[in-house]
Design a protein around this nucleic acid. Structure first.
Lengths: 215, 215
DNA sequence: AAATTAATTAATTGCATGAATAATAAACGG
DNA sequence: CCGTTTATTATTCATGCAATTAATTAATTT
């Protein structure tokens, strides 16, 4: 099974960019199998590299996960804040503008294999109350999510703060599940077209959700 | 640490109902730590019982998980189908009726600790593409979810089948995430009041989502 | 070109885990 | 009351895993 010649020991010639490759491999495996379900050995095997390399670049398993998550999570969080700032600068905006600004940075990730892996990873992380994953989510997303909650509340002043938070939760759950949906739809139809379509449907769903009133 | 007298070997006097207790303990641990993150030893330790008891009652880890999931999952699926049948029998119904019929059986689970654990378990399962969890979800929920998709489509004939499936996905993601939300809101406000309130908000959100149109 | 640093493999350590088996004791059936 | 079944603990075993250290070789610095 993929038995290559015995690897030469010592530093190889040229450069390998192994650090990035390890992040990619770990991203795929964590997304598919979860944190506990993934062995560092599997990550190394995927690149036909010695398991000790994970420790060399990332110290330990927890830190590897952390860096995988931060790599894309910080980008999404920053893009969200930038788009919100842009809307605020423009003057007036709608609930749909807000929803789209929040969702598009994530929706873009559906376009690539690694991006889809990150979406699954993120969706999975949201379900894990383990100490460090909690802290990680908060570190990356808390600021931008709070900013959007405030922005939604400004457009919907009749709602209570609790309701706004509930609706933001519903929005997050909806998009995470739909975007990271590994099954059915997304698997066969992962063209850019299908991505756009799902984004549009999700924006429409979320806008309807925010505008609807109870009772 | 909780060091009791050395346990007596052999069958204990009276009956212990250990099988059910193991399901409860496993439900809590699987919900908190996931499948791979939970050791059978932890389950046994929680009841101060020998680890071999898990094998005695449930053969192996996979089967234990399966039985944990089936125990409540089948109840929810059956309740959904019954409520859908009741609506159909009554004659006409609204999108809100459908949403409520779909969501209430799950919302009830928010009222108890074990129920909340199951909701987390379920949310987590939805993210796991591992072979057996896939099959399990399908086995339990496929029939009822398809029935609701058809029912929604009958009320919204202008939508495509793909859009209906996308919206059902969004609904499922939204409620799973919001109901199993271990953080913030739900933790402090888990009174029956808060449960009803979240259910109402969720129904309203979902109704708005289904009725809204793109573009 | 010598010394130092960087990047890799090899080998080992210690611990946790799932599973299996044997031993023991109560309950149950005739 | 005697044999069988049921429910439990004790013990063991092989595996897998994360982490550490030593050895090795290329690259970089001086």
């Amino acid at each position: 099974m993929t038995r290559g010649r015995p690897k030469k020991v010592g530093r190889p010639e040229g450069q390998t960019n192994l650090s990035d490759k390890l992040l990619d491999a770990a991203e795929l495996l964590f997304a598919e199998q979860g944190y506990s379900g993934t062995a560092l050995r599997q990550v190394a095997d995927k690149l036909d590299v010695n398991p000790a390399m994970t420790a060399y670049y990332f110290k330990n398993k927890e830190n590897l996960f952390r860096e995988v998550f931060l790599r894309r999570g910080l980008v999404v969080a920053r893009q969200r804040l930038e788009r919100l700032a842009a809307l605020s600068a423009e003057g007036s905006h709608t609930v749909e503008d807000l929803a789209r600004a929040f969702l598009e940075p994530s929706a873009q990730l559906m376009g690539t294999r690694q991006g889809r892996a990150f979406l699954r990873l993120h969706a999975r992380l949201h379900m894990e109350p383990e100490a460090f994953s909690y802290a990680l989510r908060r570190e990356v997303y808390d600021e931008s999510t709070r900013a959007y909650a405030q922005a939604f509340h400004r457009l919907l002043p009749q709602a209570t703060e609790l309701q706004i938070f509930q609706k933001v939760s519903l929005m997050v759950g909806a998009y995470l599940y739909a975007f990271s949906d590994t099954n059915r739809l997304a698997e066969l139809a992962k063209s850019q077209n299908a991505t756009d379509d799902l984004l549009d449907t999700t924006v429409a769903f979320v806008v309807g959700g925010f505008l609807s009133v109870k009772g």
